[in-house]
C-alpha cells in the first residue's frame, strides 16, 4: 500500500503530484501488479483534499493503463514500470556514488554539486528531444 503526501509549494497541481507518486512507486517497485491503491475516501481523509482531485488522478492513471478500477472493490495496479530497468538501478547508483565522491574531492559543495547535476541533466534532456 502506498501513502500519498502533498507538497503545497511545488507548483505542481495536486492531482499531478498523486499521479507522479504512483508512477515513482511503480518504478521503484514499491507498488506491484495486483496491489490495491487506497480508496478515494482514505486518501481524502488522510490529506484533507478534495475527492475530485483524487478521482481525477486515478482516472489519469487508468487512462495510462497503469491501474484499473473494479467498482465496489477498489483500484488495482495492472502494470508495473519497474520490470526492465530495476536490475540496472544498482550499478547506476554505484556509478553515481563514485562520481559524487570525485566531485567532493574536487572541492565542490552540495549546492555546486546540485547545480552541475541539474544543468547537465537539463541540457542532456534538451539534446535528446532536439
Amino acid at each position: 500500500m502506498i501513502e500519498f503526501h502533498l507538497d503545497g509549494r511545488s507548483g505542481v497541481a495536486p492531482y499531478q503530484q498523486l499521479v507522479q507518486q504512483v508512477r515513482r512507486a511503480l518504478r521503484l517497485g514499491i507498488l506491484r501488479e495486483g496491489d490495491r491503491l487506497p480508496t478515494v475516501k482514505e486518501v481524502v481523509a488522510h490529506l484533507a483534499i478534495n475527492p475530485n482531485t483524487v478521482s481525477k488522478a486515478y482516472r489519469e492513471l487508468e487512462l495510462e493503463g497503469l491501474v484499473s478500477a473494479r467498482p465496489g472493490v477498489g483500484t488495482f495496479v495492472t502494470r508495473t514500470l519497474a520490470d526492465n530497468t530495476l536490475a540496472a538501478h544498482g550499478p547506476l547508483r554505484t556509478d553515481l556514488e563514485r562520481w559524487l565522491a570525485k566531485a567532493r574531492r574536487a572541492g565542490l559543495d552540495e549546492e555546486s554539486i546540485e547545480a552541475i547535476f541539474d544543468s547537465t541533466f537539463r541540457s542532456a534532456l534538451r539534446e535528446d528531444t532536439a
Binding site: 475516501k41 481524502v44 481523509a45 490529506l47 484533507a48 478534495n50 475527492p51
Partner: peptide
C-alpha cells in the same frame, strides 16, 4: 483545522 477539513472531505466523498 486539518482534522476538520479531513473530516469534511471524507463526508464529501461519502
Amino acid at each position: 483545522r486539518r482534522e476538520f477539513l479531513q473530516d469534511l472531505m471524507e463526508a464529501v466523498a461519502e
